[in-house]
Amino acid sequence: MKTKKIFFSITLLGFIYFLTVGFIKSPQTEYTPIEQDKWVAPASADKIKNPLKGDASSIASGKKIYKMLCFVCHGAKGKGDGMGGTGLKPKPADLTSEIFQSQSDGAIFWKIEQGRSPMPSYKTSIPEKKRWELINYLRTLRQ
Rank of each mutant, 00 (worst) to 15 (best):
K77N: 14
F109P: 00
E35L: 13
D55I: 11
T96H: 03
D81E: 13
Y17W: 04
N50C: 06
I99V: 09
K89N: 11
R116P: 00
P27S: 08
I48K: 03
K53C: 00
S44K: 09
K63M: 12
A56V: 15
G22C: 10
T20G: 09
F15P: 02
G22W: 14
D81L: 08
K25M: 10
H74N: 01
L69F: 07
K38P: 00
A56N: 13
P92S: 10
T20S: 13
Q28H: 14
P92F: 10
A41Y: 06
L95S: 08
V40I: 15
F100N: 01
G85Y: 06
S26I: 14
S57A: 15
I65S: 10
Q101V: 02
I34E: 06
T96A: 04
A45Y: 09
G87I: 11
I59E: 09
L88Q: 03
P27I: 12
L52T: 05
A41W: 04
F109W: 06
S102A: 10
G106V: 04
T20R: 02
D105Q: 03
T86Y: 01
T29Q: 09
A93S: 07
I48S: 04
Y31M: 07
A43I: 12
I16D: 00
A93D: 00
E30H: 02
G106S: 06
I16N: 00
G80D: 07
L88M: 07
G85R: 11
K38H: 01
A93H: 04
Y66V: 14
G115F: 08
L69C: 11
G75R: 10
S97A: 02
P92Q: 11
K49V: 07
W39M: 09
E30G: 03
M68Q: 15
T20I: 15
G54E: 11
H74L: 02
G75V: 08
P42N: 03
F100P: 01
P33D: 03
G78P: 01
M68R: 13
G87Y: 12
T32G: 05
D94A: 04
M68G: 13
A60P: 00
V40H: 03
G115S: 12
S44L: 09
G85C: 07
Q103Y: 00
I99H: 04
F18A: 06
E98M: 02
Q101Y: 04
G106N: 04
E30Q: 07
A43R: 10
F71N: 14
W39L: 14
Q101A: 03
S57V: 11
G85D: 00
K47E: 13
G84F: 08
S44E: 15
Q103E: 00
G80Q: 08
I108K: 03
D105E: 02
C73H: 08
G115I: 10
C70H: 04
G54C: 09
P92A: 12
G106A: 03
A41Q: 02
A93F: 04
K25G: 05
Y66Q: 05
S44Y: 07
V72S: 11
V40R: 08
G84Y: 07
V40L: 08
F18W: 07
N50Y: 08
